[in-house]
Nucleic acid binder design. Structure first.
Lengths: 143, 143
DNA sequence: ATAGCTGCAAATGCTTTGCAAGGCC
DNA sequence: GGCCTTGCAAAGCATTTGCAGCTAT
């Protein structure tokens, strides 16, 4: 019986389309990373955490490809990068308007829905500049 | 005439005291870094930018010492670290309550006074956690 | 067939560290 | 004099890149 014909389409039919729309070839690696990222609720990953996760799941992907893929997904608007820690880059599957709690002790992120926090009084950007985004990070720690 | 006796005290008399209060020995390097950092209006530096600056001013300090010193000053509460860019660590001489513009194109920071921006609706921290700080970064770019 | 991907390993950039020599009290 | 600091060079991390081989179309 045929075995490797089109397992991809079976494993993540919707993801293949999503990738194609983003102008990315639905390769095995990208499909598998996509299904881990977008298959459930919103989540936050680092390149390393995602790599560990998929490797543990028995999937063969190199760390370099995970880095490349995360950036491609980000450029394609499927992910968003979150800067909270100088040491690590976080990626968020929630690309909508929202903010974050950052647990400094554990290096963990928690979403805060977009409507929750209101930021007032943001000054106009200096001449020739436009506001790209207003990021709010609520840093918390064990008390 | 005596030459190296106590130039330090002459160059930055107040800084020596500031360092002593922070529990740091007023060494030549620390005094010179301190006078560059605290001698004028508030400013933002990276380890490398500060190192370049003092070296250009004819001062002999190693980059490693600049890194160490910036961290010691931060621990002593004289500086504050600002996380806006995954690639670089910024230090701010303004340790009070305020926020930042970040010019993504140039990697440059501009202070926004503390009273300017109001953040409302910050949810309570999860059980067992306390809010350490709420950081607002207004990312701007050439328009 | 062929343009685009992947994987490995080497390279990079920022930051930290180990340890001997030097400086402050 | 003794302990703290400095400086250099080496090590450490996270991330990026070059390039040969592989793959989706």
């Amino acid at each position: 019986m045929g075995k490797t014909m089109h397992e991809n389409a079976v494993a993540a039919p919707f993801a293949a389309e999503k990738l194609r729309l983003a102008g990315l070839r639905p390769t095995r690696q990208r499909l598998e990373l996509a299904s881990h990222l977008f298959g459930g609720p919103d989540r936050h990953v680092t390149a390393e955490s995602l790599h560990d996760e998929v490797v543990e799941a028995g999937i063969k992907v190199s760390l370099a490809t995970v880095y490349n893929t995360l950036h491609q997904f980000t450029q394609a608007g499927l992910l968003r990068q979150v800067i909270v820690d100088a040491a690590r880059g976080y990626f968020d599957t929630n690309t909508g308007d929202h903010q974050h709690f950052f647990l400094e002790d554990e290096g963990m992120l928690i979403d805060i829905p977009g409507e929750t926090i209101t930021v007032a009084g943001v000054p106009t950007a200096p001449p020739g500049m436009t506001v790209d985004r207003v990021d709010v990070v609520v840093r918390i720690r064990r008390s």
